[in-house]
Amino acid sequence: ALNRGDKVRIKRTESYWYGDVGTVASVEKSGILYPVIVRFDRVNYNGFSGSASGVNTNNFAENELELVQAAA
C-alpha cells in the first residue's frame, strides 16, 4: 500500500501528469474510488508555472500509480 510522502509515477494515460512523478499527500481509507491524493511540482494547464492558480494535486487509484521511492 502507498503511504504519505511516497514518490509515485503516474500511469493513467489520459492524465496531464502521465509519466510524471508526484508525492503522495494523503491516502483516504473510506473506500472511495480514487483514494490517493498526489501532489506535483508543476501545475496543470489551469494555471501558469509559478502561479497559485493552477491545480497541482489530483486523486488517483492505487493501480494507476507506480512506487518510485518509499517515504523515509
Score class of each variant (00 low, 15 high):
residue 55 V to I: 13
residue 15 S to M: 02
residue 49 S to L: 13
residue 43 V to F: 15
residue 43 V to H: 08
residue 37 I to K: 12
residue 65 L to F: 02
residue 70 A to K: 14
residue 48 F to E: 15
residue 8 V to E: 02
residue 35 P to S: 11
residue 2 L to F: 15
residue 60 F to G: 01
residue 55 V to N: 06
residue 67 L to Q: 02
residue 63 N to A: 11
residue 15 S to E: 00
residue 4 R to A: 12
residue 6 D to Q: 02
residue 51 S to V: 10
residue 62 E to F: 15
residue 59 N to P: 07
residue 2 L to K: 01
residue 15 S to V: 02
residue 59 N to A: 14
residue 62 E to I: 13
residue 68 V to Q: 04
residue 39 R to Y: 10
residue 66 E to H: 04
residue 72 A to W: 11
residue 65 L to P: 00
residue 23 T to V: 13
residue 2 L to P: 03
residue 41 D to K: 06
residue 42 R to G: 06
residue 56 N to Q: 08
residue 53 S to L: 13
residue 5 G to A: 03
residue 66 E to N: 03
residue 9 R to N: 03
residue 54 G to T: 05
residue 54 G to C: 14
residue 23 T to R: 04
residue 70 A to T: 12
residue 29 K to P: 11
residue 66 E to V: 06
residue 11 K to E: 04
residue 17 W to E: 00
residue 71 A to V: 11
residue 38 V to Y: 00
residue 37 I to P: 00
residue 44 N to L: 09
residue 26 S to K: 14
residue 43 V to T: 08
residue 33 L to D: 13
residue 50 G to I: 06
residue 48 F to P: 15
residue 29 K to H: 13
residue 6 D to T: 02
residue 36 V to Q: 00
residue 57 T to G: 05
residue 43 V to G: 06
residue 35 P to V: 11
residue 20 D to P: 01
residue 34 Y to G: 04
residue 12 R to S: 08
residue 33 L to E: 10
residue 49 S to G: 12
residue 15 S to W: 03
residue 55 V to P: 05
residue 63 N to P: 04
residue 58 N to L: 07
residue 66 E to C: 05
residue 2 L to D: 01
residue 29 K to W: 08
residue 17 W to I: 01
residue 64 E to F: 03
residue 40 F to E: 00
residue 48 F to H: 14
residue 65 L to W: 01
residue 55 V to K: 07
residue 32 I to Q: 15
residue 71 A to T: 09
residue 40 F to M: 03
residue 33 L to G: 09
residue 41 D to T: 09
residue 39 R to W: 08
residue 72 A to L: 10
residue 59 N to Y: 11
residue 66 E to G: 02
residue 63 N to F: 13
residue 45 Y to A: 15
residue 55 V to L: 07
residue 10 I to E: 02
residue 1 A to G: 13
residue 2 L to Q: 01
residue 58 N to H: 15
residue 65 L to V: 08
residue 69 Q to N: 11
residue 26 S to C: 13
residue 15 S to C: 10
residue 58 N to K: 05
residue 28 E to H: 10
residue 36 V to E: 00
residue 65 L to I: 05
residue 19 G to F: 08
residue 30 S to L: 07
residue 5 G to N: 04
residue 49 S to H: 07
residue 51 S to I: 08
residue 43 V to N: 06
residue 42 R to T: 08
residue 17 W to G: 00
residue 47 G to S: 11
residue 45 Y to D: 15
residue 51 S to M: 11
residue 59 N to E: 06
residue 8 V to R: 01
residue 35 P to R: 07
residue 61 A to Y: 11
residue 4 R to Y: 09
residue 31 G to N: 15
residue 31 G to K: 08
residue 58 N to F: 10
residue 35 P to C: 12
residue 66 E to Q: 07
residue 1 A to C: 14
residue 55 V to M: 08
residue 9 R to D: 03
residue 34 Y to M: 08
residue 38 V to T: 00
residue 62 E to L: 11
residue 41 D to V: 07
residue 28 E to P: 05
residue 7 K to I: 11
residue 21 V to H: 02
residue 19 G to L: 12
residue 12 R to L: 06
residue 15 S to P: 00
residue 26 S to V: 08
residue 69 Q to S: 10
residue 52 A to S: 12
residue 68 V to M: 05
residue 49 S to W: 10
residue 48 F to T: 15
residue 45 Y to G: 14
residue 19 G to H: 04
residue 18 Y to H: 07
residue 33 L to V: 08
residue 41 D to L: 06
residue 29 K to A: 11
residue 11 K to W: 11
